[in-house]
Amino acid sequence: MTSPAPASSPKPILVLDRVRKAFAGHTAVDDLSLAVPPGVIYGLLGPNGAGKTTTIRMIMDILQPDAGSVRLFGGAAGGRMHAERIGYLPEERGLYRKMRVLDVLVFLGEMKGMERRRARHRAGEWLERLGLAQWRLRRIDELSKGMQQKVQFISTILHEPALVILDEAFAGLDPVNAQVMKDTVLELRARGATILFSTHIMEQAEKLCEHVCIIARGRKLVDGPLGDIKRTRGGHHLVVGFDGSVGAAAQVFADASLVKKVDDYGQYAEVELAPGADPQRVLRDLVGSGARLARFELREPSLLKIFIDLVGPEAVQAGVRPDA
């Protein structure tokens, strides 16, 4: 979470440059720029109607931006040129109801440039893995909703994409499938894939994302590594608990470049950090001073709190949506 972003970060896998899209009178996305580094889980966050889906549709070449550009994998072209390398799960889900499970997966695999035989093979593996093997020759409309969700999720990642884009990924998933989805996302991430997902549920984003971009009314409010955002938007409070020996903790707390204010109770201290101070240094210095620590906790504001502070009342409204 607080892993430092390398100064010379690798080339971003996805870049939006001052992208703009308007529909009959209202501007859905306004002058939006962002860069997604490779190999991260990136959260595109915002209340409903913020422009998340429109942004994703522009990335996928489903919509053309009115202005600005989308660059994927370092090239100038948008999503369609790179369909082979992108897995996309739209917000509204659906499959051909009358088709057989395996046929749907093979067909959608072909749409992503897979060869038929390979698609069939991979689909079989995934169905096996998610416990749907005995359903592969059944028609989609014979499956339960949860099973259909699994099938659609398989169709998104069947071709082992380098970039997975999930629009409102967890919306409408039952708890079991949400777990499957989360596990698979983490596994893809471990294999080096980049995951971009949009959501308006901050608790989910907080648990999964390394990078976030918060937008509202089509405009970007903040973006960057989640840790940085938390630090700059609060994250100034430390709770330190000692295990017997306090060492030279008092000296560390006296360092004005690190600590603005301290509330020392002997075995327990509440620390307000100086602006720009790195809590990791406080930790190092404390350990270096010979103190034995039982507890060292960065009191960060929750992403939800940052989100509400940034977005305003809209965010609260979004947070209580029943289908969330």
């Binding site: 489903i62 996309y88 440039g113």
Partner: peptide, 17 residues
């Protein structure tokens, strides 16, 4: 109409024109 109502069309048009 089927592709439109089931929204499969989004996946399709992100793969081909």
């Amino acid at each position: 109409l089927e592709e439109k109502t089931t929204r499969i069309v989004e996946v399709l048009v992100s793969s081909l024109r």
